[in-house]
């Protein structure tokens, strides 16, 4: 197996409370993982860790075979390979285009290529021609799709999804499920949390269950 992440003796504590305690977990590249567990079982904490947004309290996280160094310079290049889609995503106050182009702008991708990639990702999520809309005036389902497009446009190595389908209508849900399922075929590793007990079966892939911060 082509190992991407490796977690060893990872602990994440907030004060006295340990919210995540994973002794050994390996995640392979180009696979789909579903992460299940009750509220407060540590799913979001795990995703935040995998997105390199917050370091563990102790233990070692390896990515691509190398231990992650939590310094600004090292993190920037790591974060540019990975993106996390929050369960209630924050859209920047501006146009849909500006939102989706943000990550590309950070990577120095501009002009025609930027425009082309933004348009393609909007088509991917079923919102062609939405670029000029104001992000704050979208419906809930549309916002979720735009946030998905904002992540997809980066063509990340790893896509971390925190309950991406929890607050969307049926049509959006089915559409996005199709998009998600198609990603590992293109080499993208997808790790998503879900509440829906049926979803892991529908989507296939490997299931990881967390109970009070531990693997079950």
């Amino acid at each position: 197996m082509n190992e991407l992440y490796h977690l060893e003796s990872i602990r994440k504590c907030y004060g006295e409370r340990t919210v995540l305690a994973i002794d050994d977990l390996a995640l392979a590249a180009g696979k789909l993982y579903t992460l299940t567990g009750a509220n407060g079982s540590g799913k979001t904490t795990l995703l935040t860790l995998l997105a390199f947004l917050a370091p563990p309290s102790s233990g070692e996280l390896r990515y691509g075979g190398k231990p992650v160094r939590w310094t600004n310079a090292a993190l920037l290049s790591l974060r540019r390979q990975v993106t996390l889609l929050h369960q209630s995503p924050y859209l920047f106050n501006g146009s849909v285009f500006a939102n989706i182009a943000f990550g590309l702008k950070m990577r120095g991708i501009r002009g025609e290529e930027r425009r082309r990639r933004v348009e393609r990702s909007l088509e991917q999520v079923g919102l062609p021609g939405f670029g000029h809309r104001r992000a704050r005036e979208l419906s809930g389902g549309e916002s979720q799709r735009v946030a998905m497009a904002r992540a997809l446009v980066l063509e990340p190595k790893v896509l971390l999804l925190d309950e991406p389908l929890a607050n969307v209508d049926r049509a959006t849900c089915e559409h996005l499920e199709q998009v998600i399922v198609s990603l590992p075929g293109n080499g993208t590793t997808v790790i998503m949390t879900t509440h829906d007990p049926e979803q892991p079966h529908r989507l296939g892939g490997k299931q990881i269950r967390l109970v009070t911060g531990k693997l079950a």
């Binding site: 935040t48 997105a51 947004l53 600004n72 920037l76 974060r79 540019r80 990975v82 993106t83 996390l84 929050h86 209630s88 995503p89 924050y90 920047f92 106050n93 943000f102 990550g103 950070m106 990577r107 904002r150 992540a151 980066l154």
Partner: peptide, 26 residues
């Protein structure tokens, strides 16, 4: 400010300064 602004910018590939710039913009 919305606590999601800076993490969102970071996970989309912004550096620390760029994420603060985005915060100011928001």
């Amino acid at each position: 400010a919305d606590p999601r602004i800076v993490p969102t910018a970071l996970t989309l590939g912004a550096g620390p300064l760029q994420s603060i710039r985005q915060l100011v913009q928001e």
